[in-house]
Computed example of a mutant assay.
Amino acid sequence: MIGSQDNLNFPLREVLLYPATAAAYDLGRWDLLLQQARGAGLLARVAAVLRDAGLDDRIPPEMRWHLDSAFTVYRAHSEDVRLEVEHIARALKPAGVRPVLLKGAAYLAAGDRARLGRLYSDVDIFVPHDSIDTVEQLLRWQGWSGEELSDYDQAYYRRWMHEIPPLIHRSRGIAVDVHHNLLPLTSRVKLDAEALAAGITPSEFPGVDVLAPTDRVLHSAAHLLLEGEFDNAFRDLSDLYLLLTELSAADPGFWDALLARSRELGLHRILYYALRYLARLLDLAVPPDITAGLQSAAPVAPVRWVMDRLFTSALLPISVAAPGVWPGFARFALYLRSHYLKMPLPLLARHLWHKAVITPFEYRQTDPV
């Protein structure tokens, strides 16, 4: 069965959860670990976890340089993001806007363990909707610019989505995604951006904030389960595991607060799915009363059966998923589901028609070849 215990006996999972197991690996097992970690974007995290566990001296010399190189890249990424956040905060200061960092940058700025070995493709920030035009203009004045998009794609972002088109700094090359909500405005899963404001707290970086701990978990879960992109799914699942284990250990009331907040923000079912698959795939110990409290969010049995088989395949690294066509089908099915949840059916049909027919036609009309 997909997601059964037999299929979960792979070295990447073992080392992330139980680092000491690596001490008994032979070279073949180490080689498989490195292949799986690299494919899942978690090589630097494996290096960080082994160092954190005091097992650095148990790494075979043949494997050490791979992990040392990944760890060096991680440290460089972290410093680049820290400096970029300083630039963003300085650019927005004249308007009195304190951006709220999201996802990877938030883990770094909050000092969360989920920052360990985390690599970054961009910096995500969240600002009030009524400040979005000012924020975009200030960033453009300071060297960020967007790629050329069609009128349709501009409207797609600005009318229906939860963010403006990505901006990339002309000299530093780092992208910033500016959000005014955490979910698309047309999403079937509604999220009141103003409800997040009560929990926003200062970060360890000057001039920027982060979401409340419960909200960082819920946003991470929503991003993982609703975006429909699974290339980094196991990494994001590992992020969630680190967040939950750290925050619940530090605060005895965290689990109850998380459950209450999921209801308040309308993310009750998202939390249900996230904890279900964290327990199944990463052995997360969820308190029984929390599991019981989430039963009202569970889908009906046939839907739950289907979702279990789709998610337990799609969330695993592609290199360790079940052989055959099933993993690709599962990811594609969840990709379609994400679009169904993002838009009402008439709008989705219009969007798919435009992207499948109109956009290629317009491209052929402008292509000089």
Rank of each mutant, 00 (worst) to 15 (best):
L8N: 04
N9K: 05
N9E: 11
N9P: 08
N9I: 11
F10A: 05
F10Y: 13
P11M: 02
L12Y: 03
L12W: 04
R13I: 00
R13A: 08
R13W: 01
R13E: 03
E14F: 01
E14P: 02
V15M: 04
V15E: 04
L16H: 05
L16T: 14
L17Y: 04
L17M: 06
Y18P: 05
P19Y: 03
P19K: 01
A20S: 13
T21L: 06
T21N: 02
T21K: 02
A22K: 02
A23T: 15
A24N: 11
A24G: 14
A24P: 10
A24M: 10
Y25M: 10
D26P: 14
L27Q: 14
G28A: 09
G28Y: 09
G28I: 14
G28H: 08
G28E: 13
W30I: 15
W30S: 13
W30D: 14
D31Y: 06
D31G: 13
L32S: 12
L33P: 04
L33S: 03
L34R: 07
L34Y: 10
Q35V: 14
Q36D: 12
Q36H: 07
A37Y: 06
R38G: 02
G39W: 00
L42M: 10
L42S: 08
L43H: 00
A47M: 01
A47R: 00
A48I: 12
V49Y: 00
V49G: 01
V49K: 00
R51G: 15
R51F: 11
D52I: 04
A53G: 15
A53Q: 05
A53Y: 05
G54M: 05
L55T: 13
D56F: 09
D56H: 08
D57L: 08
D57F: 07
I59Q: 00
E62S: 15
E62F: 09
M63I: 15
M63W: 06
M63H: 13
W65I: 08
W65A: 12
W65S: 12
W65T: 11
H66D: 14
L67T: 11
D68H: 09
D68M: 09
S69Q: 11
S69P: 15
A70P: 07
A70V: 02
F71H: 12
F71I: 01
F71Q: 08
F71C: 10
T72H: 10
T72P: 14
V73E: 11
Y74S: 13
Y74V: 03
R75W: 04
R75L: 13
A76E: 10
A76K: 04
E79F: 03
D80K: 03
V81T: 04
R82I: 02
R82W: 08
L83M: 05
L83A: 10
L83I: 02
